[in-house]
Amino acid sequence: MAGALGFTGLLFFSSRSRPASPFPPPSALREVRHSAIEDMLALSLGARRLFADLWFIRLMQYYGTHEHIAGEEEEEEEHGHSHHGLDFGAGNYPEFMALSRHIAALDPYFKNAVLYSAGSLAFNLNRPGEAAELLNYALVNTPREWKFLIMLTAIGYSKSSEPAKVAQIIAPLVRERDCPVMLKQLAAFLNKKAGNYEAAAVIYADILQTSKDPFYTLNSEKELKMIEKRLK
């Protein structure tokens, strides 16, 4: 009896001291592509991060798959994932926002996924409103995340067609070691568009050194040669 009372008392004390959950409630998880069972597994196995990773891979595969629009010629698909951040990446991709939001709801601390998705929405798919919505959603759980704030600012400036300003704003993001290569690619492109060839070359050189994706590295090599010729 004494043991049972002691345990109950200690458990009560511990329940008061327990830190609150760092994650949004399950109701924040909206079903996408019949994800109900997977979402249940993610929650019940305590594997939000892992399932967010899987959904991110799916998102990249989705975005990397060419959209078949009636009347257009079939283009040969070279790779299984997206290589956007140039002036490619346009299209409808109607599930993009839903998939991105799903990843953010599963793991709000998956910064790179949010940055990748927001960057793709804003600069490739030309849907800055959805990009801003995604970033604002992510900021609810990570209000101090400066990278999201920078992206929001960049999106704001992109509407006024100031590539130099946007490039300047996202520069701190690009300097981060774990910055998504798509954003680096975008930053290099914006610098090139604004005529800042030295800045663009630095970023392309960084991509060449740090990225494992051959599409980005080959493109960076090509761009660096072009910039070298231009600067001579």
Binding site: R49, I57, H81
Partner: peptide, 10 residues
């Protein structure tokens, strides 16, 4: 193959 930039995390 699939994650590329997020390989470490995955």
């Amino acid at each position: 193959v699939m994650a590329i930039e997020e390989e470490a995390r995955v």
